[in-house]
Design a protein around this nucleic acid. Structure first.
Length: 742
DNA sequence: CCACGATTTAAAACAACCCA
DNA sequence: TGGGTTGTTTTAAATCGTGG
């Protein structure tokens, strides 16, 4: 099974990592030290994460011991390797759990991480999420028995409802124990298999909540991310108190494992008393950290006042403590109606949701987008890998949610749906024989089409499932009753469906392109947009300088986005991700008196290939942004995006504002950023020489060949006429040539 | 065998929608 | 209204096929 490939030491480390290193993430203690005991060099760097990272980059000696998963996570959090996409980290973790495949030379985890940091994974094909799913599927077998070193928590629950698979339940059912390691205090550990985080007491009021961060933000107005994180960690007992002095009178214990010391050592106290003392140390530790945060004049300003409970200025929470529970802060909570305690009016369970959907689907005529006749799923990553959720540093959780994460969720879901479809009718699931039904698999596209899926969507689904089958064939799960030829048969059937679908897909794509042409924005409208925006933006800024009204601000965002977009056709992300810092860099690079300013935006889709997206603004235009920056500062937004909306899904909101402004300008239709981009690209292609086009495309972060391929259909009438003349000229008989004999 | 164009794959982005 | 999910499109990168 899964853990067989994992060496005994490493398995032990993984199994005990949860307890031994619990809490290290929160306060960043020296858990890495334990990881690195293998070599002197690493040992020396153990207390200094930066030094360790440097060491890793330099290449490590081969003796380094395997790290436990938790230790790896700690490493990640302490020095998130910015180049590595989130999923590959998860994939690496799964690889580790499964034991490395025999063909891969055995590397220590640190060496693997070194490779990843050096950017090699582009050459090393990473496992796709689907492949991971396949790896996970065998665990679902009833026969799996958790041994002492396995620690897997799984059941065949999810397979009992094949027609309506619930990926949440599925993932919950098969989660490996290592993924359920709590990054929290020892007492928090829980091997019950239920990964759903329990509701906890809010540190600022009496309510119990599961979505603590949301509660803190909405109910208490805790806008500062760090403050919210500290409070949330306190609520969920994720505070590292190991190195603190024992609060029990007369006890001289000072360092090491305070959590274990209190819970196991002070047998003279009742269990409740022991826990209460631990709670208090955690609370005081948090107060201390919040106080430190307050001293740094954090922005947005802190709102919780629990840190004023204690006189400021002490370096460390005192070892003496008041009885537990009495130090609770005065509540700043809004009336109880806003603070809905968990348990009352709790959101419906996924199972309930599934039932509701089912009912709805049967009652109403399915809408192409809203049809829920196929099961939905998701990766409950926020519960399975809690340490990543609030990780600060190189990557943001929001990034993962919007791209890799969403796509992974979709793909996994499609495979579930397919497996569910194939196993309908009480077929035996454990041996996978239900897949050996070529005819049924060939009906799958028709089933999807019946559910109003577009042909391209059906195509995507088929590709996902085909990809799944390919991986299945390469690494058949245990137990698998399918012979090689049966597996190949299923894959062939899927492939042939894909081929059949090919023609329809092309027709569909052409119609999509036609629709795109019909949405194209004329040069006149683009110019009008630019001129109107240039006139309106200063007016809006004047209004904002008088008074900050959100509707005006939103309109300003919309006009600014429309202005930039209508000139350069940049992606939404380029405008949405423009950062204050980047504006400041632009300003300092082009001092007063220069004719304009270039803003380099770092974070957008193609930045790996094209470097940074660039926006050139004249002095006058840049002044708008400078005025906005002055207006923006007092608003104290939670992120550093220039056009901040206070939400991570910035582009989505920006489109709304763009359309708002577009409407106000009296321009036709409601274009998206992509429509504008397509139009700009098309006009650029039509008006300029290849050389100029290449320059323009690069500015838009487009490949010319890509642009040609996707915008080639957008020939104007005159161009088409020219084209025909060229063809006719080529085929016109030459006057000197003799006429054809027949 | 290699270069180069064509085709396929899959990551990433986007937009609409749902729900609490 | 914001956060989350799903369906669809866009497009870079990988792979395949073919002619020289």
């Amino acid at each position: 099974m899964w853990f067989e490939g994992l060496g005994a030491d490493a398995a032990d480390a993984a199994a005990t990592g949860g307890s031994d290193n619990a809490g290290t993430v929160v306060a960043g203690s020296n858990a890495v030290g334990a990881a690195a005991e293998g070599t002197d060099a690493v040992g020396a760097a153990a207390d200094d994460p930066d030094a360790l990272m440097v060491l890793m980059l330099q290449g490590l000696p081969p003796k380094v011991q395997m790290l436990s998963i938790l230790q790896l996570m700690v490493l990640m959090l302490q020095g998130p390797p910015q180049k590595v996409p989130m999923l590959s980290v998860l994939q690496l973790m799964f690889l580790m759990l499964q034991g490395l495949p025999p063909k891969v030379p055995m590397l220590s985890v640190l060496q693997l991480m070194t490779l990843m940091l050096q950017g090699l994974p582009t050459k090393v094909p990473m496992l796709s999420v689907l492949q991971l799913m396949v790896l996970m599927l065998p665990l679902v077998s009833e026969r799996h028995v958790c041994g002492p070193s396995c620690g897997l928590v799984c059941s065949s629950r999810w397979f009992s409802r094949p027609s309506r698979l619930d990926a949440r339940a599925f993932l919950k059912a098969i989660q490996p124990a290592s993924a359920s390691i709590y990054i929290g205090s020892y007492s928090q550990q829980n091997h019950s298999g239920d990964r759903l985080r329990e509701a906890a007491h809010c540190p600022l009021c009496v309510g119990r909540f599961r979505a603590m961060s949301s509660h803190l933000r909405r109910a208490h107005g805790v806008k500062n991310l760090h403050e919210r994180k500290l409070l949330s960690n306190l609520a969920f007992r994720r505070v590292n108190v190991r190195d603190h002095a024992c609060p029990v009178d007369g006890c001289s214990y000072k360092k090491g494992r305070l959590d274990r010391h209190i819970l196991r050592g002070h047998v003279e106290l009742t269990e409740e008393d022991r826990r209460a003392r631990l709670r208090l140390v955690r609370r005081q530790c948090t107060l201390h950290m919040i106080r430190q945060l307050g001293l740094k004049q954090a922005s947005p300003p802190l709102v919780s006042d629990i840190h004023v409970e204690e006189p400021a200025g002490k370096g460390r929470p005192p070892s003496r403590c008041r009885p537990a529970g009495k130090g609770r802060a005065p509540s700043r909570c809004r009336p109880p109606s806003r603070c809905r305690p968990a348990g009352k009016g709790r959101p419906p369970s996924p199972a309930w949701k599934a039932r509701t959907r089912e009912t709805k689907a049967t009652q109403a005529r399915p809408h192409p987008r809203t049809d829920r006749s196929f099961p939905s799923s998701c990766f409950p990553c926020q519960y399975r890998w809690p340490a990543f959720c609030g990780a600060s540093g190189g990557f943001t959780w929001a990034d993962v949610r919007t791209t890799n994460y969403q796509n992974a969720v979709s793909k996994a879901n499609r495979v579930h749906v397919f497996l569910g479809y194939m196993s309908e009718g009480g077929r035996q699931k454990e041996n996978w024989l239900f897949l050996d039904d070529v005819e049924r698999s060939q009906w799958w596209p028709a089933e999807l089409a019946k559910a109003n899926k577009a042909v391209t969507t059906v195509n995507t689904y088929l590709k996902n499932v085909h990809q799944f089958m390919k991986y299945f064939m390469e690494t058949p799960p245990e137990p698998c009753g399918l012979t090689r030829s049966q597996q190949a048969g299923v894959a062939r059937a899927l492939k042939s469906c894909l081929r059949d679908l090919g023609r329809e897909v092309v027709v569909h794509q052409i119609s999509v392109k036609e629709a795109k042409v019909s949405r194209a924005i004329t040069q006149q409208h683009l110019t009008a947009c630019k001129q109107l925006a240039a006139r309106r933006i200063p007016e809006l800024l004047d209004m904002l300088e008088d008074e900050d009204l959100p509707p005006v601000r939103h309109l300003f965002y919309g006009y600014a986005a429309a202005f930039v977009s209508s000139i350069y056709g940049h992606r939404t992300g380029v405008i949405a991700n423009m950062r204050v810092e980047e504006l400041e860099v632009a300003r300092s690079a082009f001092p007063e008196g220069s004719h304009g300013v270039v803003i380099n935006v770092r974070e957008h889709k193609m930045n790996r290939a094209f470097g940074m997206a660039q926006i050139y603004l004249t002095r006058d235009e840049f002044v708008w942004l400078e005025r906005w920056m002055r207006l923006r500062a007092p608003l104290e937004p939670s992120d550093d995006r220039v056009f901040t909306t206070g939400t991570p899904a910035n582009g989505k909101t920006l489109l709304k504002f763009l359309r708002l402004a577009w409407g106000e300008m009296g321009l036709p239709r409601r274009p998206t950023f992509t429509d504008i981009r397509t139009s700009v690209a098309t006009h650029a292609r039509n008006c300029h020489s290849p050389e100029v086009r290449h320059k323009l495309s690069h500015f838009m972060c487009h490949d010319t060949c890509t642009a040609d391929r996707f915008y080639a259909l957008h020939l104007s009438r005159d161009q088409s006429k020219d084209m025909r003349e060229l063809f006719e000229a080529a085929c016109r008989p030459h006057p000197c040539e003799p006429p054809a004999s027949n």
